[in-house]
Design a protein around this nucleic acid. Structure first.
Lengths: 150, 150
DNA sequence: AACCTAAATGATAATTATTTTCATTTAGAT
DNA sequence: ATCTAAATGAAAATAATTATCATTTAGGTT
């Protein structure tokens, strides 16, 4: 008997990948959170509904989704990676991050983001030419200490 | 018999730390390179002159130097950290990085850096207020593909 | 110059994040 | 219902980093 596939499943098929319960669930989890989840965290959420799905599959799926451009891999320098739906596939607007180096809290901000993007694009195009570098994305973060940790 | 300490050794003493061969050597290595070395890479350079010094000591020393603000820890999302002398202790000017996601090459650029810093400071102060966040540093990188990998 | 003690070190084991391997299962085309 | 490449789970392997602990050493004191 064929499993029913949801919205994400159809998109996966569109990319030439199979629609599987794990993949759909991981995408739903990423879609329904505002956090920046680590593979381990995603795995523990996955386990609630599908305890048979292993951590390896989580890693593999995230990897695939990053390659498709559906998910962004973020590295805040904690020694582990974090993931979020990429701008194009998310309801969240383009944002950057404030990282608390005490408690690890991550705040998304979208303030001044248009100025910021515009500025970055300008620099990006100049740098790209000067260093003959094909720039595909940028990453900005501000490190510091949050409200609760000060 | 007392060991002679160099310039870095005296600085370490000034910070209340002992001057040891490993510490001085690590600082000299960082000072004399334009690369962004990983602990393993530093270790292998250290080994040439002092094969008895272990990787653990390299990690410990880097950690200490980062806490002192003498060295900056950088994370380009490779699953390992890299280190460089921090702006204040280096002859290099403030810069940011272009990272080639194919071969891993990292290019420092200082172009437009004043505009960039000015812009970031402006944002930084606004964000700090709005989110009640004490921002201590920023990190920018541009990801893409270098000259050789295109 | 020998002495002392906290700080630093090296060797090793332990941890944590991630990747690989491989035998088994399953999605989805036929 | 059948078939096969793709996907998976369990387990082992790898890589980066950190912790443990017995030994050594820097550098102040005598």
């Amino acid at each position: 008997m064929k499993r029913e596939c949801g919205r994400w499943g159809y998109r996966l098929r569109g990319f030439g990948y199979k629609c599987t319960p794990g993949r759909e669930l991981i995408l739903e989890i990423l879609e329904s959170t505002d956090e920046h989840l680590s593979p381990e965290e995603i795995y523990s959420k996955v386990s609630i509904e599908h305890p048979e799905i292993g951590l390896t599959t989580v890693y593999r799926t995230l990897d695939m989704l990053v390659n498709l451009g559906v998910v962004s891999k973020l590295d805040f320098g904690e020694g582990k990676s974090r993931y979020e739906l990429s701008e194009h596939h998310s309801h969240k607007k383009h944002h950057h991050h404030l990282v608390c180096n005490k408690c690890g809290k991550i705040i998304d901000y979208s303030d001044f983001i248009n100025e910021e993007i515009e500025f970055l694009n300008k620099i990006e195009s100049k740098l790209g030419k000067k260093y003959n570098f094909k720039i595909s994305s940028h990453f900005i973060k501000f490190d510091g200490m949050c409200n609760d940790c000060i």
